[in-house]
């Protein structure tokens, strides 16, 4: 692990003996339990709580939360784009699938992301696989670079367009889940890239 920053004990957690119980984890397990039962009764909640605490106790996880925020407006924009893009991406794959007699040729392109946060890198990687015409092939953690396989991308222009798509996804993920510092860093780097783009192609 090359970026050991953040507090030792995550927020919203307490220690029981030598184990740390992370409340957000317990809460999400409880929600899953209630959804599985399909009813919200005291018995279900109590048993869910017991199971959740037991799981967190027996299988302790290292804290990953080093800066995940939920921003309502950003989340809304993210969700709306996600839905629209999911439909568009599916349509594209379907069109390519039914274009009989033509073998699709593709490209593997490198996309250097601007974020330095693990959570945002992961979020972007997951989102990118579902939405634009790309699937993650490799993640280079040290330089925050994603290598994506872009379906039916046959030339430089299409590759650049695919790269911009991924960067836009990163921007939306950052604005939905990032900390203030993450958003500021993204905007600074975006401005820098704009300035560079006038002179040369990436």
């Amino acid at each position: 692990m090359s970026r050991p920053d953040g507090p030792q004990r995550p927020p919203l957690s307490f220690a029981v003996g030598r184990r740390v119980i992370q409340l957000p984890l317990v809460a999400s397990l409880l929600v899953v339990w209630v959804l599985l039962y399909g009813e919200l009764s005291p018995a279900v909640v109590a048993s869910g709580l017991a199971v959740a605490v037991a799981i967190v106790w027996v299988f302790p996880l290292p804290a990953v939360d080093t800066g995940l925020r939920l921003r309502p407006y950003g989340l809304l924009v993210f969700a709306a784009h996600f839905a629209v893009d999911l439909v568009a991406a599916s349509a594209r794959v379907v069109r390519t699938a039914f274009a009989f007699g033509r073998t699709p040729r593709s490209s593997v392109i490198a996309v250097p992301l601007r974020t330095e946060s693990d959570v945002l890198l992961t979020g972007t990687a997951i989102t990118v696989s579902v939405i634009p015409g790309s699937v993650i092939v490799e993640v280079r953690y040290a330089t925050s670079t994603l290598f994506v396989h872009a379906l039916d991308v046959q030339d430089r222009d299409a590759a650049d367009a695919a790269r911009r798509d991924v960067l836009r996804v990163e921007e939306r993920v950052t604005k939905a889940f990032g900390t203030r510092a993450d958003i500021r860093r993204l905007e600074e780097k975006a401005a820098l890239e704009h300035a560079l783009d006038d002179g040369e192609v990436l």
Partner: peptide, 25 residues
């Protein structure tokens, strides 16, 4: 359509696209 893509696409990386998009939607 995802199934058609799975059969028709030439390599694994392309086939992953059908698993990741039309299939989820």
């Amino acid at each position: 359509a995802a199934g058609v893509g799975l059969v028709r696409f030439p390599d694994l990386l392309s086939r992953l696209h059908t698993a990741a998009k039309p299939q989820i939607l």
